[in-house]
Design a protein around this nucleic acid. Structure first.
Length: 205
DNA sequence: CCAGGGATCCGG
DNA sequence: CGGATCCCTGGG
């Protein structure tokens, strides 16, 4: 897909107003796109996690709105990026109505465009080799390094033309698996991690 | 398994 | 204030 096709297939506002678990499931197969100055980056989303508001203690929004999580409380369709473990950023797609406070964490993607650029950000010392493609965006922190997503992009409107999500590939419902979310201690009973079965680009195999 | 690393939150 | 926590990652 070229830049015009990516833009023409941009998903619209209504997508972000569905429930957070539906959005997490339906984001699989779609393309995360970022237009940079001299480069287009795109990756097929292969793994997500839903974070709700009420009943979900693991969600940043659980205890209410603060300066840090305020973007989560905006109307669906915004990009919520937070800094964690002193080193990494994680990118989330805000869902639901204004003041609700739910979001989908984008955990992994298959690099499609701007692959070498992304690889260089992840491994500055190494020359790109095709076999390493699965390591570029195979985790939420890695994906943010590859796409150069940081505090600056927090709050970006995904209905704009800079960072957005494009209609990608249809994923057979039977190929969509769910399980426990990674790295959380609270609300471990919720199977809100979604991923494409046997996909080599997901974080934890 | 473990430490790195820093912003944020919460109790005193 | 200090201490704990945190949706992570790369290296043993």
């Amino acid at each position: 897909m070229n830049s015009t096709e990516l833009l023409n297939n941009k998903i619209d506002k209504s997508f972000y107003l569905q429930s957070v678990t539906d959005a997490a499931r339906n984001l699989l197969g779609k393309y995360l796109v970022k237009f940079e100055k001299s480069e287009i980056l795109a990756g097929k989303i292969v793994e997500t996690e839903a974070y709700d508001y009420k009943f979900d203690e693991a969600s940043h929004s659980f205890k209410g709105k603060t300066k840090k999580n305020e973007v989560m409380f905006e109307e669906g369709g915004k990009l919520y990026i937070y800094f964690t473990y002193g080193m990494y950023f994680c990118a989330n797609v805000v869902t639901g109505r204004k003041d609700y406070g739910s979001a989908v964490l984008i955990r992994a993607a298959e690099p499609l465009q701007g692959i070498e650029k992304m690889f260089k950000r992840r491994f500055p010392e190494i020359i790109f080799s095709e076999k390493d493609k699965t390591k570029i965006c195979s985790g939420p922190g890695k994906l943010c390094i590859a796409f150069a997503l940081d505090k600056e992009s927090n709050g970006t409107d995904l209905c704009g033309n800079n960072i957005f999500i494009s209609e990608g590939e249809y994923i057979e419902p039977a190929k969509i698996k769910s399980g426990k979310r990674i790295g959380i201690k609270k609300s471990q009973d919720l199977n809100w991690r979604y991923y494409i079965e046997n996909n080599p680009y997901i974080s934890v195999k």
